[in-house]
Amino acid sequence: MKLSVHSLVLLVLACFSLASFAVDVAGSRDLERVPRMPDAQIVDYRQTSDLERVYPMGSIRKISGQLRFDGQVDARGNVTSVTYELPPEHSATQAFTAAREALQKQGAELLFWCQARDCGESSLWANEVFGNAKLYGADNGQAFLLLRLAPPADNTLVALYAITRGNRKAYLHVEQFEANAPLGDLLPTSATLLRQLKDTGVLDLPRLAGEPDDSWLRLLSRALNLDTGLRVSIAGPRAEDWLEALAGQGVRAARMEAASGEAPGLHLELLR
Rank of each mutant, 00 (worst) to 15 (best):
G141I: 11
G141H: 08
A143Q: 06
A143G: 10
F144R: 14
L145F: 09
L145I: 05
L145Q: 07
L146N: 04
L146G: 05
L147N: 11
L147K: 05
R148E: 01
L149C: 02
L149F: 03
A150K: 01
A150H: 01
A150G: 02
P151S: 04
P152K: 06
P152C: 07
A153N: 15
N155R: 11
T156W: 10
T156K: 07
T156F: 09
V158W: 12
V158G: 09
A159C: 06
A159T: 02
A159D: 06
L160H: 07
A162P: 10
A162W: 01
A162Q: 04
I163G: 00
R165H: 07
R165N: 01
R165L: 04
G166H: 13
G166A: 10
N167M: 06
N167C: 04
R168I: 14
R168G: 13
K169Q: 14
H173T: 09
H173G: 08
H173R: 12
V174Q: 13
E175R: 01
Q176R: 02
F177P: 03
F177C: 01
F177N: 01
E178G: 14
A179P: 06
A179K: 04
A179L: 14
A179H: 08
N180E: 11
N180I: 07
A181W: 11
A181P: 12
A181I: 15
P182W: 03
P182A: 07
P182V: 00
L183C: 05
G184Q: 00
G184K: 01
G184L: 00
D185Q: 15
D185I: 13
D185S: 14
D185N: 15
L186R: 06
L186T: 04
L187A: 15
L187F: 15
P188V: 03
P188W: 04
P188Y: 04
P188G: 04
P188R: 11
T189C: 14
T189V: 15
T189P: 15
S190K: 06
A191D: 14
A191K: 13
T192N: 07
T192V: 01
L193R: 05
R195G: 10
R195S: 10
Q196W: 08
T200L: 05
T200K: 08
T200H: 08
G201V: 15
V202K: 08
L203G: 00
L203S: 03
D204M: 12
D204E: 09
D204W: 12
D204V: 12
D204L: 14
D204T: 12
P206L: 00
P206D: 01
R207K: 12
R207S: 06
R207E: 01
L208Q: 02
L208D: 00
L208N: 00
L208Y: 02
G210W: 00
E211M: 08
P212H: 07
P212V: 10
P212A: 07
D213L: 03
R218L: 15
L219H: 10
L220S: 04
L220A: 07
S221M: 02
R222A: 11
A223M: 04
A223P: 00
L224G: 09
L224Q: 05
L224W: 04
N225F: 00
N225S: 02
L226E: 08
L226S: 08
L226P: 09
L226F: 10
D227V: 03
D227M: 07
T228P: 10
T228D: 08
